[in-house]
Design a protein around this nucleic acid. Structure first.
Length: 949
RNA sequence: AGGACUAUAGCUCAGUUGGUUAGAGCGCUACCUUGACAUGGUAGAGGUCGGCAGUUCGAAUCUGCCUAGUCCUACCA
């Protein structure tokens, strides 16, 4: 083996071998265990958040595979409708100066597929580099034919069951992307704006109770005045009661609109009068429905003022009676220009009462970044409430559990107030809606035009046209757990692997995806007894990975880290280039460059996949975001190096020797029994922590055992035996056997977390440990055996550590060179101390570099003292030790003991404590006090003795 | 406005049902190129557990209030 650990030498070739040999496929044996990967965008690339979640999924997958489960990690990608279409449109504009309309739907879609083929490999390459043990043979893409069949089937059945409907409704309209988007895709941001107070003259000479001839309404969007169809007041409002049923003359539009009573008007707020624009405001839409007001749309799909408004009745039918005039100079104006123009008109007319500064929440499209406009359009909706009921119950009943649990509240609060889901998108890239229209506008839903014709007896003379819209990407993603397994066919895979075991994802898509997956899956997937099947039993919600100062990683901030750069390393110049190239907002480039040069002045060095993964696990405590720290990554690379070198040591001392493979007699030392006991403890901890999704604690247990017990102590303890010429063959074999077998167990135990380095080392270690197999991946996962825990060995070695650390402490504090052998006396030992001394003498002597060690007989020479229990470990001072330093050291110890005694006395003299605390706690405190007092006495005597000189 | 989460060593984080002398890694200090490892070893320094009050024999841990930060939901004519 090479002297230093070089991850790049081993990782890629092992992955290739595993994949070629088919180790990632389900074994077909054992209870099934399955995880569906949250499908990343096929044209995107994986960021640190993906690396985090995928590493967790891989650890769970590898763990259960080794546990003997029939394990499937299903892989696939998502077509990401809006995002992908936007990318291709931008590309098309940049390269050919064309819009998608220039190409036409069919040719544009060809371009998208080309782009998908071109860029789609990025994700899969990255997954391979992360070591993801996914079943590549069954990779799925949401736009594949098979998956489309599932999407279509779901749409058709929901339509048939009256859970999908089409209608003219107010939706969130993106005037840039020309599509409807769902509530969840709207980002509300606080903005400084204005509130305009406008006068609406009362018709027919009516007056308010204050004798005014007009009402005052307030609005933040004056341009919507053109679409007003009423003014609402509260029925209990004495100021306006008498006006209910009367009219106002709507300025500019030339319309008489009614004054209606509605609870929406709050007497306390503003003037108490609310203008009602049902076609341009969600609240007003509801008021319109209640008060049977018509709806007037004044905007085009670009958000510009129409030449003539469009009037509809509240049921969506066309209203021909209403006046739809729009003043000439406003026509065609953009909504924000129209706002200014309209205010100017009101001012000229003397109808502008006042303008106030006003903070308001403005909705923006999360993709386009433009202000979203509520707009009246024909859309398809899923009736969500009936689907939500069983989905709520599943979580209430614990059939699905969120980890950490508090996310259940978030889920419930959204589900209890769920709105119908607008699923149509005015895009080209996506699953086209399986609905056809005849010339009268009748709708037929079916699998194909032929099917629609035959099942509805439509002759070939009647022309049918398919709906132009596609479905929301999340509609298809919501079928992911069963759609990927072959549904609507009842495949063997579906039966075997559904429901899946755990979903690993971020909290940001609980509503978008998790909730909708639960609703859809429970509607379509049933057990044999008809009980709805959940998509997964656990939802493990991870935190976000943020940058070193806690900021969210984003391209525009330029603080994004690519997981592959952590693995392979990257030069500073390349990193700067990567972060500043191809930006949406090039003006930020300079700032980003500066920031990058500051944070990574040396670039990023290579750390390897194993180190990256282990870092991610170590930081994966639940319910908490992670501030990424390069120093942690370095630390865990060092950990890998430590394992590497420990393996080198083991191999050097065991290869070409008998390691107990052949049933020859061997003898286990105390140290052997001790490390085997510690291994059992570690195995039990890892098992417990993994079962509770605490991969941070699991990795901590491994780190601690491997570095602080196996390497720091056991390897050192093996040296005295292996290098001592008088060691017997049985002793040598026993030690070699333990070295190799514990290491082999460590490798298996660590493999789900550190897949590559464990495989590389295991290949050489396994035969020495009597193990056979082509790969560590399919070996049995270690299981703790409590019968192998030897409490005597545990106690003895802890005692031994105490003695050695005590001597080293004296060495360290007294500046005695580590290489200089020193004599040691022991004094005041119990029978047990004496027994332990006899059996550990050789170890102590070697590890503490002693010249001699014996029980004190007669007068003690002047010495530096350490206590192990009440036994004194004495290092004679002659020529070695500085008196003042020793007094200082002892005084420090003495102070500590004194403080402890004071604290314990206070506690034990408190009758309430002694009376109330459990006996074992009291006994423990008493024992502590006795120890502290005895230490104090011995230390004090020692100080006196030295001082007396 | 409602809700959730966070606050522990200089930094990044653990701390299970209240019983600790509050832990880890990195960083820091001193010493050490000893035969697995300087991507290392040995020893050490470093914390009034955000603040205040309460419950309790006992609080980092439970309760209330406050402060700071992050996020979600809703509303604002």
């Amino acid at each position: 083996m090479e002297k230093t650990y070089q991850p790049s030498d081993i990782e890629q070739s092992w992955y290739q071998t595993w994949e070629e040999k088919g180790y990632f496929k389900p074994s077909g044996k054992g209870d099934s265990y399955s995880i569906m990967i949250p499908p990343p965008n096929v044209t995107g690339s994986l960021h640190m958040g993906h690396a985090f979640q995928d590493s967790i999924m891989d650890a769970l997958t590898r763990y259960h595979r080794m546990k003997g489960n029939n394990t499937l990690w299903q892989v696939g990608t998502d077509h990401a409708g809006i995002a992908t279409q936007m990318v291709v449109e931008r590309k098309l504009a940049a390269e050919e100066g064309k819009t998608r309309h220039d190409l036409g739907r069919e040719d544009f879609l060809k371009k998208v597929w080309e782009w998908k083929e071109e860029s789609g490999g990025t994700i899969t390459r990255q997954l391979r580099r992360l070591g993801a043990s996914v079943d590549w043979e069954h990779e799925r893409f949401t736009m594949d034919d098979g998956f489309y069949k599932a999407v279509q089937e779901v749409f058709i059945r929901l339509y048939r069951d009256k859970l999908i409907y089409r209608g003219k409704r107010l939706v969130n309209w993106d005037p840039k992307l020309h599509t409807a988007i769902s509530d969840l895709e709207v980002e509300n941001k606080e903005k400084q704006g204005h509130m305009w107070h406008l006068r609406y003259p009362l018709s027919d000479g009516a007056l308010t109770s204050e004798g005014k001839s007009y009402l005052v309404v307030a609005t933040t969007r004056p341009e919507t005045v053109l679409g007003d169809t009423g003014v609402a007041v509260n029925a209990d409002d004495p100021r306006y009661q008498s006006l209910i049923g009367k009219f106002v003359d709507l300025p500019l539009a030339g319309r008489r609109i009614p004054i209606v009573a509605d609870e929406h008007a709050d007497m306390e707020k503003g003037t108490g009068c609310v203008k009602i624009t049902p076609a341009h405001d969600f609240n007003d839409y509801e008021v319109g429905k209640r008060c049977k007001l018509p709806m007037i749309n004044i905007l085009t799909q670009n958000g510009e003022i129409l030449d003539q408004a469009e009037a509809y009745n509240i049921d969506g039918s066309i209203n021909e009676a209403l006046e739809t005039h729009i003043p000439e100079d406003l026509r065609g104006l953009d909504r924000f220009q129209a706002r200014k123009a309209l205010v100017a008109h009101f001012e000229e007319l003397g109808l502008l009462e006042e303008v106030k500064d006003h903070q308001l929440m403005v909705p923006y499209g999360d993709r386009s970044g433009v202000v979203i406009e509520p707009l009246l359009t024909d859309q398809w909706f899923v009736k969500a409430a009936p689907l939500a009921l069983p989905a709520i119950k599943a979580v209430e009943d614990g059939d699905i559990q969120f980890v950490p649990k508090q996310y259940e509240n978030m889920y419930f609060s959204w589900m209890h107030d769920i709105q119908d889901w607008c699923i149509s998108r005015q895009l080209w890239w996506g699953h086209r809606i399986p609905a056809w229209y005849d010339e009268e506008g009748n709708v037929y839903v079916g699998r194909s035009e032929e099917e629609v014709r035959s099942s509805n007896n439509i002759s070939d003379e009647v022309s049918l046209s398919q709906d132009n819209d596609v479905l929301d990407t999340w509609f298809s993603s919501s079928l992911w757990t069963f759609g990927t397994l072959g549904w609507p066919e009842l495949t063997e895979r579906l039966k075997t692997f559904h429901p899946t075991d755990v979903l690993v994802t971020g909290f940001d898509i609980i509503f978008f995806w998790v909730a909708r997956m639960i609703m859809m899956t429970m509607y379509f997937m049933k057990d044999e007894d008809g009980k709805p099947q959940v998509p997964f039993k656990y939802v493990y919600v991870t935190g976000l990975i943020r940058d070193e100062s806690g900021e969210k990683m984003s391209k525009s901030k330029g603080n994004v880290l690519d997981p592959l750069d952590m693995i392979d390393g990257i030069e500073l110049e390349d990193l700067v280039q990567k972060r500043t190239g191809n930006m949406m907002q090039p003006q930020l480039a300079q700032k980003i460059e500066k920031r990058t040069r500051k944070a990574f002045s040396e670039g990023i060095s290579a750390h390897g996949t194993d180190a990256l993964r282990f870092t991610l696990y170590s930081l994966a405590s639940t319910g908490r975001d992670i501030n990424w720290d390069m120093k942690r990554l370095e630390g865990y690379r060092n950990f890998c190096n430590k394992i590497w070198n420990a393996a080198r040591y083991v191999l050097m001392n065991t290869e070409d020797h008998d390691c107990g493979q052949n049933d020859k007699p061997y003898e286990l030392s105390l140290a052997d029994k001790w490390i085997v006991s510690k291994l059992q403890e570690c195995e039990a901890q890892v098992e417990k922590h993994v079962s509770e999704f605490r991969l941070d604690l699991a990795s901590q247990s491994l780190y601690d055992f491997i570095w602080n017990e196996y390497c720091d102590w056991y390897l050192e303890l093996s040296k005295p035996i292996l290098t001592n010429e008088s060691s017997s063959q049985e002793q040598l074999t026993g030690t070699r056997r333990t070295l190799v077998r514990v290491l082999e167990a460590i490798l298996r135990l660590s493999h789900p977390f550190l897949p590559f380095i464990t495989e590389e080392i295991w290949q050489r270690i396994a035969p020495l440990a009597g193990k056979q197999g082509d790969t560590i991946m399919t070996q049995d996962y270690p299981v703790a055996d409590p019968s192998r825990i030897d409490n005597n060995a545990l106690g003895d070695i802890e005692w031994l550590k105490g003695v050695i650390v005590g001597i080293r402490n004296i060495r360290g504090e007294m500046d005695i060179s580590p290489g200089k052998p020193i004599p040691v006396f022991l004094h005041n030992g119990s029978d047990e101390d004496k027994k332990r001394f006899e059996s550990n003498k050789a170890y102590i002597s070697a590890l503490a570099k002693l010249e001699s060690m014996e029980w004190l007989t007669g007068e003690a020479p002047l010495s530096a003292t350490q206590l192990v229990g009440s036994m004194e470990v004495l290092v004679p001072m002659a020529g070695l030790i500085n008196v003042e330093a020793e007094v200082a050291r002892l005084t420090k110890e003495l102070d500590k003991a004194a403080k402890e005694i004071g604290r314990l006395n206070g506690k034990l003299n408190n009758e309430k404590f002694v009376g109330n605390a459990p006996d074992d706690v009291v006994a423990k405190e008493k024992a502590k006090l006795a120890d502290a007092e005895s230490s104090y006495k011995i230390l004090n005597d020692q100080v006196e003795k030295i001082k007396a000189l």
